[in-house]
Amino acid sequence: MMASLLTLVSAALVVIGAFFALVASIGLLRLPDVYTRMHAASKAGTMGSGLLLIALAIHAGDTGTMSRALAGVVFFLLTAPISAHLLAKAAYSVGYRLDAISVRDEMAENVTND
């Protein structure tokens, strides 16, 4: 009973995780500029691969695989915001502008571009 419940849970997680990965890539396609695209990639993308790894951990059942998969999830949660932040900072300081539909940019007043 317990085993079949866990199987069902990991089946649900697999579908939901794949759905979030698909949503992230649709967002990558539809959003207007690099900063908004980063929102889709860093949130929905991390969520997608994280959920798929958790599904693998639940399905595997032995503690070694489980702890490695969970360590992987924690690692992705730690690194995804860092790489998004680095890329956004680099793109902004080099001079890639926000898309024309943006409503405000308080950073431009305070940062002198060199």
């Binding site: 649709i26 967002g27 900063y35 949130k43 991390t46 969520m47 898309d99 943006s102």
Partner: peptide
């Protein structure tokens, strides 16, 4: 995190995106 992934999903899947992006301090 779950809420934010869900919000991105809803935003991306709505047919007409009404975005007002910007940077604030």
């Amino acid at each position: 995190l779950i809420l934010s992934a869900w919000k991105v999903a809803v935003l991306v899947l709505t047919p007409r995106m009404d975005l007002k992006p910007g940077i604030f301090a």
